[in-house]
Design a protein around this nucleic acid. Structure first.
Length: 216
DNA sequence: AAGTATCC
DNA sequence: CTGG
């Protein structure tokens, strides 16, 4: 990875090892922020954010889109990965190089070298949007970790156990934070609380989360 | 079912 | 009324 990928203080011992997963706290270097924002805007032009519907018929409060070979979708028929955007019939946009660089570097630093995601779900949270506790389990390959990148407003992240009963740990995720979980922790329940109002210098009253997976 | 409603 |  490049020395400035995670900002000027990258040689600091950043990792905060939880009982499961690794959180990297850092300020993204300005040029990388700009690259990521530009890439998201480019993806949005090809595959717009939309509020998907759960199998139970409820509209999700987070707006979603995807890039990569596979995109996570939900509708009344269930959760699944699709190789094309149901909204346009077109394949999802490619995962931008700057996304891949960040995701693989974060995975490698957390003990998962060679991470090559083929799916990136992009969630956009407005004030009040949330994501209740769930497992990422629609992927074919649980040997690859999950890499999650937070941008914009802070949020309370809930990191639970392998059953829903286990009480989740809570931690605040801020702009530029990256969390990686895999191996025995790959199927841990996780979610985020409702986004509180605020103003981020780049994203305004909004949080965007990039979640990288090996789906296929 | 990654949802809401309700209770405490 | 709220947060879990």
């Amino acid at each position: 990875m490049t020395a400035d990928l995670f900002g000027a203080q990258d040689d600091q011992p950043w990792a905060e090892h939880l009982s499961a997963g690794t959180v990297w706290h850092h300020g993204l270097a300005v040029k990388h922020e700009v690259q990521l924002m530009t890439a998201i805007a480019d993806i949005e032009r090809q595959a717009g954010f939309r509020h998907m519907v759960t199998p139970g018929g409820f509209r999700m409060s987070a707006a979603m889109t995807n890039c990569g070979q596979f995109g996570w979708v939900t509708d009344q028929g269930g959760y699944r990965y699709a190789e094309s955007d149901p909204q346009t019939g077109k394949v999802w946009p490619d995962i931008p190089e700057c996304f891949l660089t960040l995701a693989s570097a974060a995975a490698a630093q957390s003990g998962y070298p060679g991470f090559q995601p083929d799916a990136c779900l992009i969630n956009r949270y407005e004030v009040g949007s949330r994501m209740s506790l769930h497992q990422d389990k629609n992927e074919q390959d649980f040997s690859a970790p999950i890499v999650s990148v937070s941008l914009g407003l802070p949020v309370q992240f809930q990191f639970g156990g392998l059953t829903r009963k286990e009480r989740p740990a809570r931690l605040t995720l801020e702009h530029g934070d990256v969390i990686v979980w895999g191996g025995p922790d790959r199927l841990r329940y996780h979610g985020v609380g409702a986004l509180k109002s605020g103003e981020h210098r780049l994203l305004g009253a909004c949080r965007i989360n990039l979640t990288f997976r090996k789906a296929g």
